[in-house]
Structure formats: C-alpha cells, structure tokens
C-alpha cells in the first residue's frame, strides 16, 4: 500500500441481513483502502454487495441488516486542513451526532436515481440549502448563495430559476447535475457515487462522468464509484475492486485489472464486454450459470460453480482469502495462492 495514510480504510467489513428465512451475508469480509483524491471503483453484478458496502460506510444499513464485524476507519481533517486521527465509523452510533456530522459533510452520497432521490414536493433549492445549513453555520441567504454557486459549478443553466423549481420540472441530465451539486455542497472529501449514470442516456452519461471527474480533481475529493459497467470504470477509476456475492474477488489499479486480470471471474467479466474489433453477429461470451440465491451461497469459493478453472476438492471446500498477487494487485483465488479465509 501507499505510504500515505488512506482517507478511508475498510477492514474485513461484514454486513449481514437477519431475515425470517435466514441470514443473508450481503457483505462478508471486505477490505479496501481509498486514498485522498482517488477514484475507487467497485464493480459487480446485482446482489454482489456493492451497494450494501456503500450503505455501511455511510452507516445507513436498514434493519434487518447490521454491521456484524470489521472496521471502517475514516481519517478526519481539522479546520486548518491538518489531518487528524482516524476514527472507526462502525463504533459510532449510526444516528448519533458524530455520525450525522460526518454524513453529508465529510462523506456525501450521489444516489442512483435522481428522479426518486429528490423529494417531489420540495424545491431543489430547499433541499440543497438544507444540507448547507445543516453543516455550515450560515443563514438562509448565504446558503442560497452557496447553492446557486454549486448549480453553476455543475453547469446548470439559469441556476437562479432552477433553485425554485422541483425535481420533476428538470430534464434527466439536469436532475443528475442537481443531485451532484447537492452532494458537493458541503465540500465532502469522500463522495460515494452509487451507479450515478444508470438513469440517464449515454450522451448525458458521458457528460456527467466528465463533470464528476473534473469536480473531483478540482476539489481533490475521493470518490467511491459503484457500478456494474466496466466501461464506466475504465473511464473513471484509478483502482478497482471486483465483488462477487459479498466477497472481494480481485483488486488493483485500473490498468492492471483491465490488462492483466488474474481472477477467472474478472477475466470472464472482461470477455463479455463487446468491442469494436469483434466479429459481428457472433454471440458474446457469457458467464455460464447465474448468481446463486443469497440463501444458498455455495460452499468454498462463491464463484466455483460457474468457474471454468475451478479445482475440484479445493475450490468447493475452502474459501480463498484476498492475497497480494503482484505489485499492488490482490486476488482471492487458489490458482495463485493457497491461503484461505480464517473462520
């Protein structure tokens, strides 16, 4: 790892859901670091635990879900910009004053569906100013000024008018920009973007991604970028973590993951991306089988039933741990090491 202290350091995070039917281990031992100013991508299919990981970092996991283990260390910054001791978010009361001061101010969320993520009966301005007044000691007028500047920064035309409009009066792209403005309004050092471009068309998606990247560089904020789209990851991320059924399969810098993927799951994901050099009218390679139901996770490596290279007697019996495999690359696969997850 880098010598620099990471902004966010998640260690062996476990978040389980206690349902009547049984326990769903949505996140089952996830470890990663996010450096200041870095874009950290989390990829995976639906249900792999990427959104739950993000909710755990914000301490917004709803019952019956609960963080059952691990730590989430956040390095806080003093008023003067000097760094402070890291605190473990898992130990904080999820709705306590301290966690609420962190939420929105230090870690902000860019949610998935901008349409549903704004209240339809409150104006955009009201909702943005609310966040500003909550974390900064400013009055209504000053908050409005900040909100106006934020809307300008994210490239919304005629922002004075937009502040007094409702989310459903805006186009999809503008709504997405407004949501980003709201998340950035308190200058957070960590942004969590949960599939922020799934709800907009491709052209708008490209614009929004460029905007996010520019704002992130200007403000030197870190982003945890959650998506199922490897193309978006390639465009946005500095490092990538690939998740499958609540576990980390592989992790490393974006170039390494795309050009030298080690885990069979990552390799299979990359093969299923269409490219311009492909022969037309040939079926895309797919990953055989489907994601198992969370109640019957396979024993051993969760991917082994769908894995072409699975080793009988090993992959179906023991769960591989995430281990270093080359410079700044980690993989949990018995093809590369023999370390299993300790129970």
């Amino acid at each position: 790892m880098d010598k620099q202290q990471p902004l966010l350091s998640v260690k062996n995070l476990k978040t389980h859901f206690f349902m009547d039917e049984g326990v769903v281990k949505a996140v089952d031992g996830v470890t990663f670091d996010v450096q200041a100013g870095q874009v950290f991508g989390i990829v995976g299919e639906s249900g792999c635990g990427k959104s739950v990981t993000m909710k755990a970092v914000l301490r917004l996991v709803d019952p019956p879900g609960r963080i059952v283990g691990g730590e989430i260390m956040l390095r806080r910054t003093n008023e003067d910009g000097s760094t402070n001791e890291a605190i473990d978010l898992v130990k904080l009361d999820a709705n306590g004053k301290m966690m609420r001061d962190i939420r929105g101010a230090e870690i902000a969320l860019i949610p998935q569906e901008p349409m549903a993520s704004f209240s339809p009966v409150h104006t955009i301005g009201d909702q943005i100013c609310e966040a500003i007044m909550l974390h900064q000691s400013v009055d209504k007028r000053a908050a409005r000024k900040i909100a106006l500047q934020m809307l300008k920064d994210v490239g919304i035309p005629i922002p004075e008018q937009r502040l007094d409009e409702y989310s459903w009066q805006l186009s999809g792209g503008l709504r997405q920009r407004a949501i980003i403005a709201m998340a950035l309004s308190c200058n957070p050092r960590l942004l969590i973007a949960d599939e922020p471009t799934t709800a907009v068309d491709v052209t708008t998606q490209a614009q929004v991604l460029r905007l996010l990247r520019r704002l992130q560089e200007q403000r030197n904020a870190a982003i945890i970028f959650i998506t199922h789209d490897l193309g978006v990851i390639a465009q946005m991320a500095d490092s990538v973590m690939v998740m499958y059924l609540g576990l980390v399969m592989e992790q490393g810098p974006v170039e390494t993951i795309f050009h030298n993927a080690k885990h069979p799951y990552t390799q299979a994901l990359l093969r299923s991306i269409p490219t311009v050099t492909m022969t037309p009218r040939v079926n895309l390679p797919t990953i055989s089988g489907s994601i198992p139901h969370p109640f019957n996770k396979p024993k051993g490596c969760p991917f082994h039933p769908r894995c072409e290279k699975s080793i009988a007697g090993k992959c179906d019996a023991r769960t591989p741990a995430l281990q270093a495999a080359g410079e700044r690359q980690w993989v949990s696969c018995f093809l590369y090491h023999d370390v299993e997850v300790s129970a």
């Binding site: 914000l58 917004l60 609420r100 969320l109 704004f118 609310e130 966040a131 709201m182």
Partner: peptide, 9 residues
C-alpha cells in the same frame, strides 16, 4: 436515503 445521507436527524 438522500435525506439521511445529508446528515439530518
């Protein structure tokens, strides 16, 4: 979720 993520009580 958005409202909670802002840090509102």
């Amino acid at each position: 979720v958005t409202a909670r993520a802002k840090g509102l009580s």
